[in-house]
Every structure is written in structure tokens, then in C-alpha cells.
């Protein structure tokens, strides 16, 4: 197999992913607390809240600390002259080759969290699939979008 794509996602991207997971985990914590309160009033067995709490703790550790780290380590991309090479995944590492001539259009998008860190996600659409490069620095994302759409000349009218 040829060597990995060169570029990595910015370290701020890791922060944003962590932040997203923390928000989700906080919402889950609220649910767990709600269950605990309910079991106090309705005299449900204690082990229910105990198990839920343990699951929450374990899940939060995995989703907040481990998964974003691995994801960030695996995520790589490289824009060549004729194709885009993207590597992603956590347990299953996927390498996608998107030829420039197959690219239909390129979008950048930015949610509130990404905006805070001046990051953006680039979405590359072919006739059948959509691929994204998440959490790039804004300037890098804009540059990438422009260069991809410039390189993606329309050559084939039959998709």
C-alpha cells in the first residue's frame, strides 16, 4: 500500500471533537441523574442507578478521551493534482481515493463550535457519494475548496 496521506487535521479539531462529546456526555449525565432521583422517590432498586452511572462513566471516558484521540491520529488527507486521498476511521481504517474528474462540487460548512475555533469542514461530493475533511483551519478550508473546484474540471458528461 502506498504511504499515508501527508496532512493531519488541526489540533484544534481534536478540541472541538472533545467538546462535542463532552456536551453529549453532559446530556447523558442529566438523564442518569433524573433516573437516580426517580428511583429515590419510587423506591426502585438501587442497582439500576448504579449500573447506569457506571455505564455513563465508562462511556464518557471512551468517547471523550479515547475515540477523539484515535480519530485524530488516523484522520489524514492529501490533495494531489488528480485525486484526493482521505484516510479516516477508528477501529476500521478506511482509505478513500476520489479522482478530481469525479468531483461534482465542494462545500465548506461551519457549525457554532467550529466557528469558535475558526475551523470549517470541507465536503466533497461525487455523483454517488459525499466525503468530508473535518475541522480544517478556515483559510486552509477555503483554499482547499477553491483548489479542488478548480482542479475538478468537468470532463465527462455522463457522470
Amino acid at each position: 500500500m502506498r504511504e499515508q496521506p501527508k496532512n493531519q487535521i488541526s489540533p484544534d479539531g481534536l478540541k472541538v471533537w472533545r467538546l462535542q462529546e463532552i456536551i453529549i456526555s453532559a446530556v447523558c449525565l442529566l438523564i442518569v441523574i433524573a433516573v437516580a432521583v426517580l428511583s429515590y422517590y419510587f423506591h426502585w432498586p438501587y442497582w439500576i442507578s448504579g449500573v447506569l452511572g457506571a455505564v455513563w462513566l465508562l462511556g464518557s471516558i471512551v468517547t471523550v478521551f479515547i475515540i477523539p484521540k484515535v480519530r485524530h491520529k488516523v484522520w489524514r488527507y492529501e490533495v494531489h493534482e488528480h485525486e484526493i486521498d482521505i484516510q479516516s476511521g477508528i477501529f476500521v481504517v478506511t482509505r478513500v481515493i476520489v479522482p478530481m474528474v469525479r468531483v461534482q462540487h465542494v462545500d465548506t460548512s461551519q457549525g457554532p463550535l467550529l466557528k469558535k475555533y475558526n475551523l470549517a469542514t470541507v465536503k466533497i461530493s461525487t455523483a454517488a457519494t459525499v466525503h468530508s475533511i473535518p475541522a480544517l483551519e478556515m483559510e486552509e478550508a477555503d483554499r482547499l475548496r477553491d483548489s479542488i473546484s478548480r482542479l475538478a474540471r468537468v470532463t465527462d458528461d455522463d457522470v
Binding site: 500500500m1 476511521g89 477501529f91 476500521v92 481504517v93 478506511t94 482509505r95 478513500v96 481515493i97 476520489v98 479522482p99 469525479r102 461525487t126 455523483a127 454517488a128 457519494t129 466525503h131 465527462d156
Partner: peptide, 16 residues
């Protein structure tokens, strides 16, 4: 080849 929109190669931990 010209009809293949993308080509994907994936590898799980065990496949590695």
C-alpha cells in the same frame, strides 16, 4: 474505471 466514483480501501484491526 471511469464509472467508479470513488475507490475505498478499509482495514479493521484484525484485518491489519
Amino acid at each position: 474505471k471511469k464509472r467508479m466514483q470513488v475507490c475505498k480501501f478499509s482495514q479493521s484491526y484484525f484485518q491489519k
